[in-house]
Nucleic acid binder design. Sequence first.
DNA 1: ATAGGGTTAG
Length: 809
Amino acid sequence: MSSNLLALHKTPPLHNISKTTTPLYQRIFIPTHVYRHPSAILLELCTSMKELHQILPLIIKSGFYNEHLFQTKLVSLFCKFGSINEASRVFEPVEQKIDVLYHTMLKGYAKNSTLCDSLKFYNRMQNDEVKPVVYDFSYLLHLCGENLDYRKGREIHGMMIANGFESNLIAMTAVVNLYAKCRKIDDAYKMFDRMPHKDLVSWNTVVSGFAQNGYARKALNLVLDMQEDGQKPDWITLVSVLPAVADIKGLRIGMSIHGYAIRSGFESMVNLSTALLDMYFKCGSVETGRLVFQRMSSKTVVSWNTMIDGLAQNGQSEEAFSTFLKMLDEKVEPTNVTIMGALHACSNLGDLERGRFVHRLLDQMKLGSNVSVMNSLISMYSKCKRADIAASIFENLKGKTDVTWNAMILGYAQNGCVNEALNLFCTMQSQGIKPDSFTFVSVITALADLSVTRQAKWIHGLAMRTNMDKNVFVATALVDMYAKCGAIKTAREIFDTMDERHVITWNAMIDGYGTHGLGKAALDLFDDMQNEASVKPNDITFLSVISACSHSGFVEEGLYYFKIMKEDYGLKPSMDHYGAMVDLLGRAGKLDDAWKFIHEMPIKPGITVFGAMLGACKIHKNVKLGEKAADKLFELDPDEGGYYALLANMYSSASMWDKVAEVRTAMEKKGLHKTPGCSLVEWRNEVHTFYSGGTNHPQSKRIYAYLETLGDEIRAAGYVPDNDSIHDVEEDVKEQLVSSHSERLAIAFGLLNTRPGTTIHIRKNLRVCGDCHEATKYISLVTGREIIVRDLQRFHHFKNGRCSCGDYW
DNA sequence: ATAGGGTTAG
């Protein structure tokens, strides 16, 4: 019986009907005009503009066209199908317009036209001496809410009061709704509080108001309050509160709401199922999400959209895309949100081909002017490594929003185009668009990649001045950036002063310690994290912890954390986790264990895993397993020259020169190249880039000359060149001289141009080679300088002839 | 004949 509560609320009880003399047509809900003529029944059943045009001649022929009821119905239908012009063509010629016709027309304006035009029509009503009714105000207020026009909304609120609707339930509910939509939730609540009588609809309005304004807990509490007030939540209450549940990832509350919905017989409401679907995905419960979707007896386009994006956000992008295709197959008309979901999936997959397919589709759908869609398109091309295409879309896009700027800045940042990202950041501000937390995160991430301390301090200062550093995500990006700039202490200081820490904050700090070789600090921090009730470690946390163990040689600990990750935390290891484990075992010299581990993996081992294996074989000169790993790599990713280089390095470390030559020939035949070594160093507000063996730098001569004297000094101090490292796979003979590796040029430049005692920060795009590592240790000794090198995988702090990695990297 | 509250999105 509870399921009928809403029905009882809206219609009089049945026994009343049978006692009265209500005419038959009212009892079965057929309106008067329909009763009078069969053609009107068609009008009642009409569901599209096309049908309406077919029926229109019949109405005219019937002679009823001039009746008020028909005119009003026609205006109503034309408006419903979106044509205010055709409604107007019915409305204007009517000589004796009844009030209802005006009200209907005003509704049409409010739903299909601008606020300005609607207000003009309202003024006309005043002139024509039509007395406004409460609904006129609610349409207008609704429109103000949609346009987020708070000022006009207040004006209309005033007009409403002037017309005597100050304490009208419906009018006040509309006001509450308006203030809530305009993000003035306090005003909305004040109005709600002032209402002498509150019904289900007004409670629902205020619940959805708090939910939409991000006050999830408050929204949930209001649902309890309303029940104390004697209102039983209906399915709209649930739909309104479910986004709040999703916001706080309250899976348990969500499930109890689901139970309540089933008990109350709301299961068949599509919108409710869709809201449940969304909630389950936002709570990360993919399985339940799939189940809800499967069980839905009818699906709207919103259900499909929720499913597609929900899957994409939960790492199921292949399934997201196939769901998108299935939707097209079932002839469901996609919307802009569908396209955004599909693009989201393509972004995650990094699949340019399918991304282009969606792009063509959205062009066909004429969605090219939809800013949100274009923002997603920019993100997709950026994620597919085509920042150039993204940039050309960005340039040509009319009506850019802050989201558009953020998407492009992030796109540049993710593609290593730091200067472009910074330039766009400046252009954005010069055009009066305020950077938000997303913008800062993108720019900070880009700078973190560069590892340039001066720029780091600049953006940090800017974030502080704009109060952006209070945002968790911005602060986390700062922690990450300082860690990547080698300033691990500053990173920790920011971490410690944060009011709120997200999982990603902990992850960034743990990873920072890990890459600095501070394994103990990383594990201590992981312990601290357990004491924090509000955060739970996720898969990334464990990846950082395991790789921290790997960098510090904590094999036992690494195995332990891998175990508890699965058993105590219920997390499924990804390819990256397996790669980190192989690295952990392999680096420690347990190559057979690593090889065994690969074969016992429950998923098919990928490039990450074999890459780690080959790297370990190179360090420990295990040619037999290294060749096996390399074979797999060539099979999995035949176009990557880096593996050939790694293999050649392995042979050279084992002094197998003929094999080295063989690999070089194979590489040349395939036209593959090793990524050129490149090191960055900051000097006087500029970033100087050095390539291996390069002579393009203005100070080049001075640098090479200095490297020669430096070579003599370090040899005198005991440095012995490592001949094994010399046989690299570079084509140029000069590049074979390790003394011209990019980091040495950068170090020499740094030493020549900074005052004695200054720490030198270098950023390298590849891993440091053994000989350079050895040489840098001696350089730090003879020059008395601290040299910090960030390579592809970790930090090396060289000081007094030693490195923080303890020669373990 | 007009009728206040509701789901998806960087």
